[in-house]
Amino acid sequence: MSGLLGKKLGMSSVYNEAGNRVPVTAIEVGPCRVIRVKSVEKDGYSSLQLGFGVVKEKKVRKPELGYYKKHNLDLYAHLKEFRFPTDITYKVGDEIKADFFTEGELIKVRGTSKGKGFQGVMRRHGFGGVGGTTHGQSDRLRAPGSIGASSYPSRVFKGQKMAGRTGGESVTVSNLRVMKIFPDKNIILVKGAVPGAVNSIVQLLKKRVG
């Protein structure tokens, strides 16, 4: 799936053609630099490695630094490989900008959700809690209930939903409409919310063709 890297800037709202207010998330899209081109002939599949966010020399690992120097590229903080169709026309060093997308297009956005810490089963898995508040019940309101049967199987099955660390995982949201593009500022507005905190790195993915 071809895509770009971007940075979530925050939410706002715009008015659509019908005059209705629409919630949008502003995302700084690139500009992404093509770091490496993979082709079917050489690598067995076609993709582009893209870099986003220029950084200073001391922030980059030495093997990466050598590669950047060899190809005379800026140094990038974030690298990500995206599958691209086999007829790639991009070359190493090319810049891909916000106009990679078109207004009205439906895209996917993938990001790392905000960390929520250690959460109980109601928050983490949407459990309903146990029973009511009356008839002498005192401390089971947010409990998970039974976690399995007794002598058979004499253990708790793997994958049993329990409390634990929540959030901070990769989340993809599909079918977000591109409402507006500012090509000069490299910013696009996407309808609705996008996973992650403000200033976090997100992947913007084109929908798979066919």
Binding site: L9, G10, M11, S12, S13, V14, Y15, A26, E28, K185, I187, L189
Partner: peptide, 12 residues
């Protein structure tokens, strides 16, 4: 840097 406030003023 892009400011989200610019969007607000954009609506005439």
């Amino acid at each position: 840097m892009f400011s989200l406030n610019e969007l607000a003023t954009e609506g005439q």
